[in-house]
Amino acid sequence: KEFRPGDKVVLPPYGVGVVAGIAQRSVSGVSRAYYQVDFPGSRSKAYVPVEAPHSVGLRKAL
């Protein structure tokens, strides 16, 4: 896996977040693995496909 729990990442347009782990989510009846990204200071979460994280701009924070 490219990202691990605890990694600081950037996800446009949300900003800097932390990978909380990998979650299985069902979309249109198909279960897939997603990185769960939490954003400190907020209750917001984002789910990014493990198979294509760069397709939505997910990258490691510098």
Rank of each mutant, 00 (worst) to 15 (best):
1 K>N: 14
1 K>H: 15
1 K>Y: 15
1 K>T: 15
1 K>L: 15
1 K>P: 14
2 E>A: 13
2 E>Y: 13
2 E>I: 12
2 E>L: 13
2 E>S: 12
2 E>W: 12
2 E>N: 10
2 E>R: 11
2 E>P: 10
3 F>E: 00
3 F>R: 00
3 F>V: 02
3 F>K: 01
3 F>L: 05
3 F>Y: 06
3 F>D: 00
3 F>P: 02
4 R>Y: 09
4 R>N: 12
4 R>V: 09
4 R>S: 10
4 R>A: 10
4 R>L: 11
4 R>C: 13
4 R>W: 09
5 P>A: 13
5 P>Y: 08
5 P>K: 14
6 G>S: 02
6 G>N: 03
6 G>P: 02
6 G>I: 01
6 G>V: 00
6 G>T: 03
6 G>H: 02
6 G>L: 03
6 G>K: 02
6 G>D: 01
6 G>A: 05
7 D>V: 04
7 D>S: 04
7 D>E: 08
7 D>P: 00
7 D>N: 03
7 D>K: 01
7 D>W: 09
8 K>N: 06
8 K>T: 08
8 K>G: 03
8 K>A: 09
8 K>C: 14
8 K>P: 06
8 K>I: 15
8 K>R: 12
9 V>F: 04
9 V>D: 00
9 V>R: 00
9 V>W: 02
9 V>E: 01
10 V>C: 12
10 V>D: 04
10 V>L: 07
10 V>W: 14
10 V>M: 08
11 L>G: 00
11 L>R: 01
11 L>N: 00
11 L>F: 07
11 L>E: 01
11 L>H: 03
12 P>K: 06
12 P>S: 07
12 P>W: 14
12 P>V: 07
12 P>L: 08
12 P>G: 04
12 P>C: 15
13 P>R: 09
13 P>L: 08
13 P>A: 06
13 P>Q: 06
13 P>W: 10
14 Y>I: 04
14 Y>E: 01
14 Y>N: 02
14 Y>T: 01
14 Y>P: 01
15 G>S: 02
15 G>V: 01
15 G>L: 03
15 G>N: 00
16 V>I: 12
16 V>E: 10
16 V>S: 06
16 V>M: 11
16 V>W: 12
17 G>M: 02
17 G>F: 03
17 G>P: 02
17 G>L: 02
17 G>T: 01
17 G>I: 02
17 G>S: 01
18 V>G: 01
18 V>Q: 04
18 V>H: 05
18 V>R: 08
18 V>S: 06
18 V>L: 06
18 V>N: 03
18 V>P: 01
18 V>F: 11
18 V>A: 02
19 V>N: 00
19 V>S: 02
19 V>M: 04
19 V>C: 05
19 V>K: 00
19 V>P: 00
19 V>A: 00
19 V>G: 00
20 A>M: 13
20 A>W: 08
20 A>H: 08
21 G>Q: 07
21 G>M: 10
21 G>E: 05
21 G>H: 06
21 G>C: 13
21 G>R: 13
21 G>Y: 05
22 I>W: 03
22 I>K: 03
22 I>Y: 06
22 I>F: 06
22 I>N: 00
23 A>P: 02
23 A>E: 12
24 Q>H: 12
24 Q>N: 11
24 Q>L: 14
24 Q>V: 13
24 Q>M: 15
24 Q>E: 10
25 R>C: 15
25 R>L: 14
25 R>S: 05
25 R>K: 09
25 R>V: 12
25 R>W: 13
25 R>F: 14
25 R>Y: 12
26 S>R: 13
26 S>L: 13
26 S>Q: 10
26 S>H: 08
27 V>K: 09
27 V>E: 09
27 V>C: 11
27 V>W: 10
27 V>M: 08
27 V>T: 08
27 V>D: 08
27 V>N: 06
28 S>E: 13
28 S>C: 15
28 S>Y: 09
28 S>G: 14
29 G>R: 04
29 G>I: 01
29 G>L: 03
29 G>D: 03
29 G>E: 02
29 G>H: 03
29 G>K: 03
29 G>F: 03
30 V>W: 04
30 V>H: 11
30 V>C: 10
30 V>P: 14
30 V>A: 06
30 V>Q: 09
31 S>P: 08
31 S>I: 14
31 S>Q: 11
31 S>C: 14
31 S>D: 05
31 S>V: 14
31 S>M: 14
31 S>W: 15
32 R>T: 06
32 R>F: 06
32 R>N: 05
33 A>G: 05
33 A>S: 11
33 A>V: 10
33 A>L: 14
33 A>H: 09
33 A>W: 15
33 A>E: 11
33 A>M: 13
34 Y>G: 00
34 Y>W: 05
34 Y>D: 01
34 Y>F: 10
34 Y>K: 01
34 Y>P: 01
35 Y>I: 10
35 Y>M: 02
35 Y>K: 00
35 Y>S: 01
35 Y>P: 01
35 Y>A: 01
35 Y>D: 01
35 Y>N: 02
36 Q>S: 05
36 Q>V: 15
36 Q>P: 01
36 Q>F: 07
37 V>Y: 00
37 V>Q: 00
37 V>H: 00
37 V>P: 00
37 V>I: 15
37 V>W: 01
37 V>R: 01
37 V>C: 04
37 V>D: 00
38 D>M: 13
38 D>S: 13
38 D>G: 05
38 D>V: 15
38 D>F: 14
38 D>E: 13
38 D>Y: 14
39 F>C: 15
39 F>G: 00
39 F>Q: 00
39 F>E: 00
40 P>C: 14
40 P>F: 13
40 P>V: 10
40 P>I: 09
40 P>Y: 13
40 P>K: 08
40 P>A: 10
40 P>N: 07
41 G>T: 09
41 G>N: 11
41 G>H: 13
41 G>I: 08
41 G>F: 14
41 G>R: 10
41 G>A: 11
42 S>D: 08
42 S>Y: 10
42 S>V: 09
42 S>P: 06
42 S>M: 10
43 R>C: 14
43 R>Q: 12
43 R>Y: 12
43 R>M: 14
43 R>W: 11
43 R>S: 12
44 S>Q: 15
44 S>N: 13
44 S>H: 14
44 S>A: 13
44 S>L: 15
44 S>C: 15
45 K>S: 15
45 K>Y: 12
46 A>F: 10
46 A>W: 08
46 A>I: 13
46 A>R: 11
46 A>E: 05
46 A>M: 11
47 Y>T: 01
47 Y>G: 00
47 Y>W: 11
47 Y>E: 03
47 Y>S: 02
47 Y>R: 01
47 Y>M: 06
47 Y>A: 00
47 Y>K: 00
48 V>A: 06
48 V>S: 00
48 V>M: 03
48 V>R: 00
48 V>W: 03
48 V>L: 04
48 V>I: 08
48 V>N: 02
49 P>W: 08
49 P>G: 03
49 P>A: 07
49 P>H: 04
49 P>T: 05
49 P>I: 06
50 V>A: 03
50 V>D: 00
50 V>L: 07
50 V>Q: 02
51 E>P: 03
51 E>A: 08
51 E>I: 07
51 E>R: 05
51 E>S: 09
52 A>W: 09
52 A>Q: 07
52 A>E: 09
52 A>C: 15
52 A>I: 06
52 A>T: 07
52 A>K: 09
52 A>R: 07
53 P>A: 15
53 P>I: 10
53 P>Q: 06
53 P>G: 08
53 P>M: 06
53 P>K: 04
53 P>W: 15
54 H>G: 10
54 H>R: 07
54 H>I: 06
54 H>E: 14
54 H>T: 08
54 H>D: 12
55 S>M: 10
55 S>V: 10
55 S>N: 08
55 S>L: 13
55 S>C: 14
55 S>Q: 09
55 S>F: 07
55 S>I: 11
55 S>H: 08
56 V>W: 11
56 V>I: 07
56 V>T: 09
56 V>F: 11
56 V>C: 14
56 V>P: 04
56 V>A: 14
57 G>T: 04
57 G>H: 05
57 G>D: 04
57 G>W: 04
58 L>Y: 01
58 L>R: 03
58 L>N: 03
58 L>H: 02
58 L>C: 06
58 L>W: 03
58 L>A: 04
58 L>K: 03
59 R>T: 09
59 R>N: 04
59 R>K: 08
59 R>I: 09
59 R>C: 09
60 K>P: 13
60 K>F: 11
60 K>C: 13
60 K>G: 14
60 K>V: 08
60 K>I: 09
60 K>A: 10
61 A>S: 07
61 A>Y: 15
61 A>F: 15
61 A>T: 06
61 A>R: 07
61 A>E: 06
61 A>Q: 07
61 A>K: 07
61 A>P: 05
61 A>G: 04
62 L>S: 12
62 L>R: 09
62 L>N: 12
62 L>A: 11
